[in-house]
Structures are given as C-alpha cells and as structure tokens.
Design a protein around this nucleic acid. Structure first.
Lengths: 159, 159
DNA sequence: CCTTGACTTTGAGTATACTCAAAGGAGTAT
DNA sequence: ATACTCCTTTGAGTATACTCAAAGTCAAGG
C-alpha cells in the first residue's frame, strides 16, 4: 500500500505543504517517487514521520532532526552519535516535563485564585484569605510553583 | 530594594535585551522608571516575570500574555476572562505533558535500541531480537510510544 | 480530447521571538 | 573633567518553521 503526500497529510495531520517542505529540507530521504516524480509513502514511512513528530514536539530543531537522519543514512558507523543524541534529547524532555509540571502547579493555583475571585467579584477575596485557609492541594501547588530563581534567595532551593 | 534591567537579567536569566523587548511589547506595564527614565524593578515584579516565564514556557504567545496583562490592568471586571484563560492554558499544558510523556517513551525505547546496537556494532542486533526478549519496561514504553494516529488503524485506539 | 483535481517545483512571504547596532544619556571612580 | 559602564531608544536584521503563489505535470472520468 502506497500513499501520496495528500493522503499522508490527512492521516497524520501534517499539511502536504509542510511534508514537502520537510522533504526539501532533507528530512524525508526515505520517501520514494513514482516514475512521474510523485512521492509514494510506504507504510513503514509513517514510523519515520512519527519519530520526526516526536522529536519536533520536544523542541528539536529540524536541522538536528536532519542530522540524525543523515547519520542513519550513513549506517552503523554512526551508531554512537545517534545513541548520544537520543540520550541528550531524553534529558531535555525530562527537564521539560519537570518544568511543565511547575507551570501546571502555577496554573492550578491561578485557576483556584480566579475561581475564588470571580465568586466574590473581586481579587481581594483570594488575596486576603490567610494562607491556612487555602485548600491543601492549592497551597502545595502554589509552594511548588513559586520555588524558583525568580524569587528571593529564601525560596529557590536545590538545583 | 530596586533593580535595574541588567540586574534583573542576571537574576532571572532573561537577557536585558529581551526584557526591554517585552516592555516595548506591553508585557511589563508594572515596571516603574527613575526620574531619568531608567527601569526600576521592584521585588514584586519578579512574580510577574515568573508568571510570564511560566506562560511562555507553556507555549503561550506574547500576544496572549499581553492580553492577560491588559485584562489585569483593567481590573475586576475582567476576572472571568482571566479565569477562562488560565483554565484553557491548564488544559493545554496537561495535554503537552501527556504528549511529552509519549515522546519520553519513544526516547526510552530508542536509547535502549541504540545501546543494544552500539554494543553489537550493528542495528541488526536490536532489530532481530524477538519481542519477548525486550526488557519489560522497554516493551511497555515502546507500546505506549507507538500508540498513535501515525500507525495503521490497528493501533491508535482511544482519544 | 479535455477537464478536473491532485501532484510537482521554485521562490517569495509571513509570524514569532528575539537580537543587535547606532547614537546618545546618566551616574560613579579617579 | 574624563573615562567607564550601564542605561536609554529606534529601527533593522536574524532564525525558525512554516505557508503560499505561480506555473506547470500527470492520471482518471465523461
């Protein structure tokens, strides 16, 4: 079973424009062409696209993704570079998840804050509540959210 | 205690250039100026910067962050918009964390794959291992990583 | 045969978020 | 007073990742 760029676009949710752009940038050397030059994606190519999407969603620039694909194309002599790249990216993603969890804590706190404010019609309501009155989870989220380098030396421990 | 743009830059790890850029874009209306026009950040402004960083790290465009700050400046009549914005962003971040965890599964699998390949000197080693031979955690990570719309109808359940 | 629609390429345009250069002002140190 | 460093502004330039327009090709259906 073979797929044209438009069919692939529909299935994976990346526009045909973008797929051609990736191809032009050298990210899709594995895609074959019909006699008349039309891109024919194989079933297996979806795995490549999935990997590219994964890396991209972790913030890896296209240039680095291409570097990996180039290494792949070279063959077994680039195994170590590829391994190192994945380890490096894994660390970055672990860091990103940690950071996003802090952001989520901030948002959890802000959602509570504005729920309380909307109910009272004024931000004074949540602002004037004394700290013990916060729900347990909210207080914990707030504490985690504000433990960072932006806050005075007192906070922002470890790291 | 007041801080100049350079001092703030050093403390929070955002360049002075970028802080001025944010100010120009209307993200820092709370920053006051000295008689001679120099930005003087107050201790409390670091909370603002932290919130901006949080939102930015979640992928919120500066334009939307400015929208929020504008709402804040208006006062209590915009409480609902602000609440809704935080709820919407919270959902986005929860989705991002889910996706990053899938990406992490992919990377965990790839790290194992290349560890195995590097040890043997060829990708054939991990490729030819039969599925039962994979470590439990690796098999699980791989299964989660490949459960998505890129794969044929068989996979990609729910959602 | 001709239309239709999806494919092709090249090159240009856009959006976002910086990032810097130039030219000048202000406050401190010697 | 002169240097030095950090501050100011405006406007331009850059990087990344698309996104589109134009002009042309190809295969199938009426």
């Amino acid at each position: 079973m073979l797929y044209t760029v438009g069919e692939v676009a529909e299935r994976v949710g990346i526009s045909a424009h973008t797929l051609r752009y990736y191809d032009r940038e050298g990210l899709l050397p594995f895609v074959e062409r019909s006699a008349s030059g039309i891109r024919m994606f194989k079933e297996h190519d979806f795995e490549w696209l999935h990997l590219i999407e994964c890396l991209k969603s972790s913030g890896m620039p296209l240039r680095e993704i291409k570097q990996f694909i180039d290494w792949y194309t070279v063959g077994d002599e680039t195994l170590e570079q590829r391994r190192d790249m994945f380890y490096a990216r894994k660390e970055i993603v672990e860091e990103q998840i940690k950071e996003l969890n802090k952001t989520l804590d901030m948002l959890t706190y802000k959602c509570w804050f504005y729920d309380t404010a909307v109910e009272a019609g004024t931000v004074d309501a949540p602002k004037q509540l004394n700290p013990e009155a916060l729900p347990e989870k909210i207080a914990a989220a707030k504490a985690r959210a504000f433990d960072n380098k932006f806050m005075r030396a007192s906070g922002g421990g470890k790291r």
